[in-house]
Amino acid sequence: MTAALVIENLHKTYVRKAWLGKRVEKPVLRGIDLTLEEGKVLGLVGESGCGKSTLCKVILGIEPITSGTVQVAGVNINGLSTAKWRDLRRKMQVVYQDPYASLDPRFTVRQLVSEPLDIHKLYMDKSARENYLRELLNSVQLDVAFLDRYPHEFSGGQRQRIAIARALALEPQILIADEPVSALDVSVQAQILNLLKDIAQKRQLSMLFVTHDFAVARFLCDDIAVMHQGKIVEYAPAEELFAQPRQAYTQKLLSAVPTVPRGAL
């Protein structure tokens, strides 16, 4: 069995040309080893600026690798041809934090969700396409009547559902989710978290779920990786990590998490 993602000794350094042609280097990922097992949800938790989004961008091929290897569904992504990337992107999709920024306002929901299908020439038959779109919208619990509306007509939670539908359109095996609920209204976050959990189970998705919220990670994730200054400092099955965090850094983070006293609810 191959793992969904295998990352080995991954380094990423941002380089900026400064004054007088001087190169300023900023090492952000500093030797990441991480495996996302097939069909599992892996939580990537860490404080602001530790490199979580950078890791996602490298996995998605948006940022080049400095050194080390990333394998997506058994394929080494370094130096991959455009055609090979397109194949791979069919298997791996992404949902971002900000549902306002990630959907092009000029397109209707139908166009937004159809676009990946057009690119990969899938469901080209009109009625098959229509049925599939309806099925997709149903799976993210959106009314099919929304198909011909524009993103600005929706609330944050609805927009994130649209983004999820778009990501699922190609039936990917792997979903990269970079803080998908942190920009949502508090009363809507739970809806989306339940949805992601259902979808992951039903579709046997492998998901890399980035969050800075341990409570959310505990709800959704099978395994958890704690990241600190560009390194993975602890990696464990979620319940093990919460019961017995081994690293001092994890302990420090967990003890600082504010909690709501649970009463007679």
């Binding site: 009363s187 709800f219 009463g263």
Partner: peptide, 29 residues
Amino acid sequence: FSHPLHPYTQGLLGSLASVERKEERLPAI
């Protein structure tokens, strides 16, 4: 926090994920 009276407060508190235990489902509003 121990006795929220308004259904909105009750709903919000009920829908929060907890760091202290794993829930199977979040009772969402």
